[in-house]
Amino acid sequence: MFDRFDIFFVQQLVNGFSVGLVYALVAIGFTLIFGVLNVVNFAHGEIYMIGAYAGLMALIFLAPPWVALLLIVLAAGIVAGVLLERAAFKPFRRFRDEASLKSKAMRESTLLSSLAVSIIVREATEKIFGADMRPIPRAYANALQEPILIGELAVASGQLVILGAAIVMFLTLQFILFRTQIGLSIRAVAANPLGAQYVGVNVDRTVIATFAIGSGMGAVAGILIGLYQGTIFPAMGFAPGVKAFVAMVMGGLNSIPGAVICAIFLGVSEAVATEFFAQGWADLVAYLFLVLTLIFFPTGLFGAGRERV
């Protein structure tokens, strides 16, 4: 049905799709937090890295079954996200008057505080675990490299795990946002923080919940990619962080479906680019998309008029 080239090409699309799903999981947390606080969380990539290390520790010391592993990483991400919020974001939220809410200096301070936390966490991880790549225990890594043939197409078992985990998380997130009280609160704060205060939403608790949800998803993305690629390292959060940021901007800054679609599109485009260019150049795709989006679609591809979050 396909000649060799086509099979290889389709294979690349599948690989790109898997990576794109991971970007999407990271981008969702980014977008949620941006939607609610209106600031970029620079430490989101480190949450992803923490997820990978928490997963690695669990594998080495507990060797849990797959589902338990993902739940442990989810919990680690939630704890890390809540601590991050308390350390880097909460201190700047006690200023309630409009002048500081609208002030640029206030937003920049919050940006810098999350950047500071990200540097501290990354450096601390290097101190504790070393800066090198650490391999995932072979038994686990191998289990995710099992080829599964679909016709002539070979899909790694890990790609199916990523797909399954991503779908479960997307659906859970939609359920939380649209069917629960806390989801309603998150959407209310994202839509109108002042209005949310008037209807009695506990804004502080809502922000914490947002960090918990976004960080839990980011951490799971970290262990998924670690398992899939077989290694983890302290700076691993940077590249997916940049790509998730690009997906968020392309998606219109405040649209979760937009960010997910753009993240997958980005992952696939990178995979296709490696067909034609050397690997190093493929990383430029994200920056190219960012620049093109900012020039031609300043409100994003899915941005204008949509509900925030």
Binding site: L184, R187, A188, A191, N192, L194, G195, V199, E307
Partner: peptide, 16 residues
């Protein structure tokens, strides 16, 4: 007014 413009009338009332 400070309503939630992107949300439905039903959701606005629910939030109240």
């Amino acid at each position: 007014r400070q309503i939630f413009g992107a949300m439905t009338v039903a959701e606005n009332l629910r939030l109240g």
